[in-house]
């Protein structure tokens, strides 16, 4: 995936948000990344310092919340994690088509001053 440009988008949004709230510097960037998003968290971490350089987010800490792929079984009315992405309900063994979480790639929150 395009971790460098995703990180650039994240930093741009973080700086915009900080400025809109009267801030000048971004100290922490929290991302939410789903296991099914195709995004490699380590590649985001790798890109972060480079992308933040020379921006109001220079030196910001990056926190990544990794969201497991989670399906819904309508039969059992439960959510279950599906780390192999196969969506098989651990209770009834039916295959669920409904992925509830795991495709996120978003800027969750920032810390600024």
């Amino acid at each position: 995936m395009h971790e460098v440009s995703l990180m650039e988008n994240a930093v741009r949004m973080a700086v915009e948000t900080a400025r809109a709230s009267g801030g000048e510097r971004v100290h922490r960037i929290r991302l939410r990344v789903g296991a099914m998003s195709g995004v490699v968290p380590d590649a985001l971490r790798f890109a972060c310092d480079m992308v933040c350089q020379g921006t109001p987010a220079d030196g910001a800490e990056l926190e990544i919340e990794e969201v497991p792929a989670t399906c819904w079984c309508a039969h059992c009315a439960v959510e279950f994690a599906t780390p192999d992405f196969l969506g098989q309900c651990p209770h009834c063994h039916a295959v669920s088509g409904e992925l509830r979480r795991g495709t996120e790639m978003e800027l969750a929150s920032i810390e600024f001053s």
Partner: peptide, 15 residues
């Protein structure tokens, strides 16, 4: 002190 946190909740590919 002086730091604030703000929820953003925006997709990185929203554009």
């Amino acid at each position: 002190p002086g730091r604030q946190t703000v929820a953003v909740q925006r997709g990185l590919l929203e554009k």
